[in-house]
Write a protein that binds this DNA or RNA. Sequence first.
DNA 1: GCCGTTTTCGGCCCGACTGTTTTCAGTCG
Length: 572
Amino acid sequence: MATNAEIAARLMQIRKLMELAGESFYKYMAFEKAAASIESAAPLDDVIAAGELLALPGIGKSIAGVIEQLVATGTADLLDDLLARYPPTILDLLAVSGIGTKTVATLFESYGIASLDDLERAIADGRFEGAPRMGPKTIANWKRGLLAYRGRLRRTPLPEALAIAREAIAYLREGPPLERLTYAGSLRRQERSVGDIDLICTAADGAAAIAHFVAWERAAAIVAEGATKASLWLADGLQIDLRVLPDHLYGNLLQHFTGSREHNIKLREYAVRRNLRVSENGILNLETGDNLTCAHEADVYAALGMAYVPPELRSGLDEIELALAGTLPVLIEKDDLRGDFHMHTTWSDGDDSLEAMIAAAAARGYAYHAISDHSRSRGSFGLDRARLREQRAAIAALGNRYGIRTLCASEVDILPDGTLDFDDATLRELDFTIASVHTAYDQDRATMTARLIRACENPYVNLIGHPSGRGYAEYTFDLDAVFTAAARTGTALEIDGQKGRLDLPDPLARRAKACGAMLCVDSDSHRVGDVSDVEFALGQARRAGLTKDDVLNAQPLDAVLAFVAAKRGRAG
DNA sequence: GCCGTTTTCGGCCCGACTGTTTTCAGTCG
């Protein structure tokens, strides 16, 4: 059974090979659009069974036939024909910065080069000396691109990229005067991992800003440097782009560089039908010649007659249609959060004291939060029943000093058979229970599915912590079966904001909502400085299209206590 | 190859930067 992502990858493989083969631009771009459409669609097996493949955007009769072949057999006639012409390793060359399809086609046809190794050998042998359009600078760029590719095969996790972006912004602020400055791109859209960092700023003297940027001591290489735009690589190959324009264009600039590419294409296609040309330089009326510049991003969407689309929703799926119809979801915001259910202290594996963590939760303005240290089977640091009672007493002893309600909770291990690390009598003493998988990640799909459903069915379990394991352990389970069980039993599903987790990821959170489940947005913090990690979870929630009604810790304390009581009540 | 508030044909987002060019093709986002 192939996943949507695997089918989409096959379509992209076809798309790239078609471009190499010299097919028309619009023909191979149709495959790229189809791949994006598949990636965000419901599971293909279901779609095909329902006879709804042709209803997906960007899928016509021709590509539908290819997809059906791919799903049924793992390959397709079209793909087989292309692979008969080009070795599969040839596509690796496209991953090298500075090498595109035209170059790959030339390398293959004129030099028989079909892999990264072939290219490195040819450069070392000096085979390109005197060749047309392959001067010394071009060859040097390829060498640099090869080095970067070999040293960097992963995307950068959002929390890591955000820290680097803030460092770069702080550096830029030390230089010549800038007006507005921020990060854009996939970072602003809160993608779980990013390929590069996009910075934009407005300044009266753009050239000075660019000059200061490329002089950054952290820059290992300057990839491009022009009048309004520069790109550099850090030592590990991470690329940072800076674009500078005058301040009256800030709204256009921010909209343009926030993307996504697919969102901008759809937005501009819509604009073209209304005789408007949208770019970072303004909105040009093709009839009158007037160019509308926008100091604020919201003005761009308003000028196109649609509702403002939050960055997290700019995926190129259906957000333009929803914005035109005025039916975009009202996304949950930071100020909607009233609590955090997932915080650790030195009582288990946290770095800060109980009191410090309570104070930190209060400092964020929460009305309530839960202290949820690990249960006894988590090595030496897990709490047993006696220690849990001691902790409850310690919480009581602090009284209402910080003006926040602290719920006594536990993050209980879900054991391999789906039972819990504490018996019901112990759980009954708690205000709130998180149940999480921390062991036996290698269970097969059916076993893991049954394990998670059994945890949901325990009347004292209120929340499944980091449910999918993404980021830590990529175990598999039947998503719909577990999410539906969570909805049926009154068990919430967590979006965990711990750096390296961000679990549930946004597509799964979207799915969980569709199954009717309640979600939570938590920090899973182990120290005071990480309580704000809840904002990473919030980003995933917003990308999933969640409103405050979808999130348990956006509800008042009374509603949370009622949520817990209702599940216990149903169990009798 | 796909699509439609100019709908079954004729379009399909937009612009910056580089290298090697005497005016532009290729790459990137």
